[in-house]
Amino acid sequence: MTIRVLVVDDSSFFRRRVSEILNQDPNIEVIGTANNGKEAVEKAAELRPSVITMDIEMPVLDGISAVKQIMQQTPTPILMFSSLTHDGASATLDALDAGALDFLPKKFEDIARDKEEATKVLQQKVREIGRRRVSGFRPSRVAATPSTASRIASERTTTSSLRQPDRSFSQRAPVTDTRNTGTSERPKASGKQYKLMAIGTSTGGPVALQKVLTQLPANFPHPILLIQHMPGAFTPAFAQRLDTLCKIKVKEAENGDLLKPGVAYLAPGGKQMLVEGRSGSQKLKIYEDDSPRVTYKPSVDITFASAAKSYGDAVLAIVLTGMGADGRDGARLLKQAGSKIWAQDEASCVVYGMPQAVASAGLSEKSIALADVAKHINTEIGCG
C-alpha cells in the first residue's frame, strides 16, 4: 500500500527537498504540500494523507497548534522536523504531547553521517509511522499552555513548557490483539527481589515514558535507568520535563553518578551509559562512542549488558515502543543472569520493532499495554 504524504514547511526549498527524497521510495507518494499550519489543517482534511511531515516554526499557525487541530479534526500520523536547540527540543516535546508520533532534526547532516543514510532514515520513519492509524484525542487533566513555537515567534515571556507541557491531545493506536489490551489482566507480584529497573525505548518513547513514570510513587525503592533514542540537544529538556511532572526525581545522567533509590537517570543523547561497580556502590559511566558499528547512541543493548554484569538477577528491564531491535541482545544477557524482561504489547506501540524483537526471541515474560505498565511495575516492585 502506498503511503501518501503531506509535506508542511514555510521554506519552499525544504518542501521540495523532502518531497524529492520521499518520492524516491516506490512505496511513498507526496500528494501535497503546505506552507503554514493553517494550510496544513485544511489540506489534511481535504487530502486525507497517510502521514504528515510538519515544521514547528511557521507563519499564520505554528506546527504545534496545527498538530493539535489535526489530531482533533482528522487524526493523522505526524513526523515533526526540529532544530537541535533547547527551544527546538522543548517545542518538539510539546508537539509529541500534542499527538505527533516522531521527529527528526531539520538539518539532514544531523540525521546521519552522509546524505544517503539520512535519506534512508527519513524514508524509513515515514514508512513506519505510516503503518499506524491514529484516532481520537484525550483531553488532559493538565491545563494547556501556549506552545513553544508560539512563544518563540512572539518572543513573549511565559511559563516554560518544561514546567507545564501541553498534553491536551494524545494519539491512540488501534487495538489489534484483544488478549493484550490491558483491560482485564490483574497484575500479580512474582515475589522476586530487585535492585534496579531499566527501561529502553525509541519511536514513541517520550510520550510512553511520561505515561509510565508519572504513575510511580515518590518512594520508589530502586534506581531507574532510562535509555531513549534521542539527540543530545533534547535529553536535558526531556529530563527536566519529566522531573517536573513525576513524583520521583528524574535527571540527565552524568559521569560518576551514584545510583540512588527513587531517581531515574536518562542517558544523554549521543553518548553511552554504563553501570559500573557492585554490592550497592554502583555508579554510572557516561562516555563518547565513536564506533561506526554502534548504531544507537545511547544504546539499550549497551546499558542493559552493563546492568546484567553489575546487578545480575536483580533487574526488572522493560522494552517499550521503538523502531529496530536495540535491546534484544542486552535483554538476552539480563535474562541469562536471571533478571526479568517485560515488553510493551503491539496494540499500544507506535512502532512494535523493539518490543517485538525481545518478544520474538522468547526473552520477555509479559507483553503489557502501555496504560498498564506502571500498574504492573508498582505491583511487582511492591509499591503499588
Rank of each mutant, 00 (worst) to 15 (best):
R163G: 13
Q193G: 04
R141Q: 11
S364G: 00
K249C: 02
A369W: 02
A44P: 01
T201H: 02
L96D: 05
D243K: 09
Q123I: 05
G99R: 02
V315T: 08
I64V: 15
A317S: 07
D289A: 04
C383P: 00
D94M: 08
I64H: 00
L61F: 01
M323C: 03
T379L: 07
R179D: 11
K260W: 00
A173L: 08
F304E: 03
L22P: 07
R167K: 13
M80Y: 03
K106N: 07
S154P: 09
P165V: 06
A337S: 12
H222L: 08
F304R: 08
I199C: 05
V358M: 03
P268C: 12
H376K: 01
R328F: 00
R17Q: 15
R4N: 12
L320D: 05
E365W: 02
E57K: 06
P292V: 03
T119E: 15
D55T: 03
N23R: 04
G280I: 01
V212D: 03
Q69I: 01
V175K: 09
Q193Y: 00
P174S: 05
A218Q: 11
L6M: 06
K211Q: 06
P217N: 01
G353K: 12
G256W: 03
D301A: 04
V315K: 00
Q210A: 07
L216M: 00
D9G: 06
I31N: 09
R17S: 15
A253D: 02
F13D: 11
K68A: 07
S348G: 05
R16G: 15
Y287I: 06
E252T: 08
I227T: 13
G384D: 07
I286P: 04
F238R: 04
S50K: 02
A66L: 07
K271R: 15
M354A: 08
R163T: 14
R328N: 06
G205L: 05
R141D: 13
M323K: 07
F234H: 09
L266G: 11
S299E: 06
T85S: 10
E288P: 00
T214Y: 00
F103N: 05
G204T: 00
I28Y: 06
K375D: 14
K251F: 01
M1E: 05
T159P: 01
T119C: 06
Q336A: 15
I70K: 04
